[in-house]
Amino acid sequence: MTATAKNEEQAPEGAPEGAPKGAPKGAEVIQVRDLVAHWGPRKILNEINLEIHEGEIMVIMGGSGSGKSTFLRHLMALERPTSGSINVLGRDIGSMGVREMFELRKKIGVAFQGGALFSSMTVGENIMLPLHENTGLDRMTMEIMARMKLEVVDLAGFENLMPSELSGGMIKRAAFARAIIMDPKILFCDEPSAGLDPVVSSALDDLILRMRDAMGMTIVVVTHELESAFKIADRITMLDKGDILFTGTVKELKKSKNQRIQNLLNRQTEEDTLDPDEYLRRLTGEELGKGAAP
């Protein structure tokens, strides 16, 4: 059975659209309450509410400028919200001190869009860095752990190469290895498929599913790749202009009658779906039949 088919079969019927649904079984590991975020004077997120459950893969989708990357940065505690709260693993990250934040971050892994590997270090050193800085382990133990994680992401034997010697897909896999080196409870992935060909992209999706199944971690993925999202998601949250448009399973998303969701799913712009008269009216700013400007 394919991952997509599996996910679709999990979807419960009859749940109201917009409310958290699907089949989340574990405890809530992330709770977002009335999150408002600004970028300078501009409001990016508008009273976001969301729960993410233990062991699920939550995909956050949306068009460019929808606020998904800002939302992810808030979940990773890289930004402070204007208002609202974010609870991660039972703690409000807004009220955490420096030491508590260090402790929390040991339980979180992040795979950045570009990998964010340190160019002055080998792949192995990159992967060992969180262990080196956060634990008192000896070097040999760290090397063994790094090799194990590299095997998980199918990069065994690459530990002595520099990041500049790796392909785009390999860099992303190395970034995954670094993200999971501390065996995190939550893994955040920012656009894992961006810039990759479909084959490599599909392999990364398989890797995400495998990591969840093998390590039981909660995974939050931000992506705009529909195919990838449908393959890996237990639930999808769709953001639009700073608001949550939809939260639910893949099957529910596909069934949604919401025009904006359908536009995103069908890769259509809003103008594509407009009535020609309405489109003309918007272009000219005039009411039809009342005479357009000369």
């Binding site: 940065r73 402790e103 992040v110 160019s119 860095l129 969180p130 956060n134």
Partner: peptide, 22 residues
């Protein structure tokens, strides 16, 4: 500057490594 642009500073932060200290 390069590390900031490549999100390496963010990576340090989320790994629990303070960039100022490191």
């Amino acid at each position: 500057g390069t590390m900031t642009i490549n999100q390496e500073i963010d990576a340090l932060n989320v790994m629990g490594i303070n960039p100022v200290r490191y």
